[in-house]
Amino acid sequence: MTTIAFYGSSLLSSYWNGAATYYRGLIRDLAGRGWRTTFYEPDAFDRQQHRDIDPPDWAEVRVYPATEAAAASVIAEAARADVVVKASGVGVFDDLLLSGLARAARPDAVRLFWDVDAPATLSEMRASPDHPLRRILPELDLVLTYGGGPPVVAAYEGFGAHRCIPVYNALDPDTHHPVPADPRFAADLAFLGNRLPDREARVRDFFLDAAARLPERRFLLGGNGWEPRDLPANVRHIGHVPTRDHNAFNGSATAVLNIARDSMAATGWSPATRVFEAAGAGACLITDAWTGLEMFLKADEEVLVARDGAEVAAQVAALTPGRARAIGEAGRRRILAEHTYARRGAQVDAILRDALAARRARSVA
């Protein structure tokens, strides 16, 4: 069995960790293709106190203390793996992991950086000529990204990456699927997202402004960091929503709103995991406009698109239950046909096997 040492934020917890669904979908599918992944995650940011899955049978999870000594210890274990992955946004000793893993990997092992927030990472590299990733890129076999399309590929290759390939978010239909409506999540429009500096203004523009325009409608806000006193009276805030409740959250409102973060909206081709989770649950999705959307869903048939809060409010006001249901069903069909983790897993499997063959050929030569 071919092995992967994967160093990321968390596989076990989605708490302040939007990449959890992405990691789970890909690693689970790769397990069925003959890959055995050991996922290394630090005990940090209270994530272990907010686990929403048990350790799975399709991966080994190693939780290590958030100390420099512990990080050095797990870095040494990379020498056992055929593929060594450093993901962005671990949050603890990222620079140490990045440089250490490149050195610890065997000569015949594939080394790659997996960026789950490419717009932010690229912005940091542009601002810092001595950024650790800029120095290490020539030593890596490839960069995989959570999204970003042609602009991200061009930027990474411009910084010296040998190859950069987007591996987009997707749907795991075994995890995200239609369920009966739950009165806890009943609303005319629901939005799920943590309060983050590069998303807050867009949430106010697209969600809170829409709520203020429709005082007679019910709006539901899930996620950490929002203060109820700052919200319109018709917005109900419920805090963190664990992944086990995402299907009910997405399937209980008339419509669900997706709002890209500033950098991802500007870059384009960056659908969040929420897009696929909502579509998988059969939700009628309203999204802010961004370049590349048509690669995933067709406007007005499989998804509704808005350019500001006024347009969100207009979409909600005009939406009937029948039209919402039709859009949700059409979106779900499209995602099931073209954007599942089975498809993404096949893509990554081919990428990694080609990279391994090339790496081994070079090491023999």
Score class of each variant (00 low, 15 high):
residue 4 I to F: 03
residue 7 Y to D: 05
residue 10 S to Q: 01
residue 16 W to L: 13
residue 21 T to M: 15
residue 23 Y to E: 14
residue 30 L to V: 06
residue 32 G to R: 08
residue 39 F to R: 01
residue 41 E to V: 07
residue 44 A to Q: 13
residue 48 Q to I: 09
residue 53 I to E: 10
residue 56 P to N: 11
residue 57 D to S: 15
residue 58 W to P: 07
residue 62 R to C: 09
residue 63 V to A: 00
residue 63 V to Q: 01
residue 64 Y to K: 03
residue 65 P to A: 00
residue 71 A to L: 02
residue 74 V to N: 01
residue 78 A to F: 06
residue 79 A to R: 12
residue 80 R to D: 04
residue 84 V to R: 02
residue 85 V to A: 04
residue 86 K to C: 01
residue 91 G to W: 00
residue 94 D to K: 06
residue 98 L to V: 04
residue 107 P to K: 01
residue 109 A to F: 11
residue 110 V to I: 14
residue 113 F to T: 03
residue 116 V to H: 10
residue 120 A to R: 13
residue 124 E to V: 00
residue 127 A to L: 01
residue 133 L to W: 00
residue 135 R to L: 08
residue 135 R to P: 00
residue 136 I to D: 01
residue 142 L to T: 11
residue 144 L to S: 04
residue 147 G to H: 06
residue 154 A to R: 08
residue 156 Y to P: 03
residue 158 G to T: 04
residue 161 A to Y: 01
residue 163 R to Q: 15
residue 164 C to T: 07
residue 164 C to W: 03
residue 168 Y to G: 08
residue 178 P to W: 09
residue 181 A to C: 08
residue 181 A to H: 06
residue 182 D to I: 08
residue 192 L to T: 05
residue 192 L to H: 13
residue 194 N to H: 14
residue 200 E to L: 14
residue 200 E to I: 05
residue 201 A to T: 12
residue 204 R to F: 14
residue 205 D to G: 15
residue 210 A to K: 06
residue 216 E to I: 08
residue 220 L to T: 07
residue 228 P to L: 13
residue 232 P to C: 15
residue 235 V to T: 09
residue 237 H to C: 14
residue 238 I to C: 13
residue 238 I to F: 14
residue 244 R to Y: 07
residue 247 N to D: 12
residue 249 F to C: 11
residue 250 N to Y: 14
residue 252 S to N: 07
residue 255 A to R: 10
residue 255 A to H: 13
residue 258 N to C: 13
residue 261 R to F: 15
residue 262 D to V: 05
residue 265 A to V: 12
residue 270 S to K: 10
residue 272 A to K: 13
residue 278 A to C: 11
residue 284 C to Y: 12
residue 285 L to K: 14
residue 287 T to F: 05
residue 287 T to Q: 11
residue 289 A to F: 14
residue 292 G to F: 09
residue 294 E to T: 15
residue 296 F to N: 06
residue 305 V to C: 00
residue 310 A to K: 08
residue 312 V to A: 00
residue 315 Q to Y: 06
residue 315 Q to S: 05
residue 317 A to G: 02
residue 324 A to W: 05
residue 328 G to F: 00
residue 330 A to L: 11
residue 337 A to I: 02
residue 344 R to G: 09
residue 344 R to Y: 03
residue 351 I to H: 06
residue 351 I to N: 06
residue 351 I to A: 07
residue 354 D to G: 05
residue 358 A to S: 14
residue 362 R to M: 00
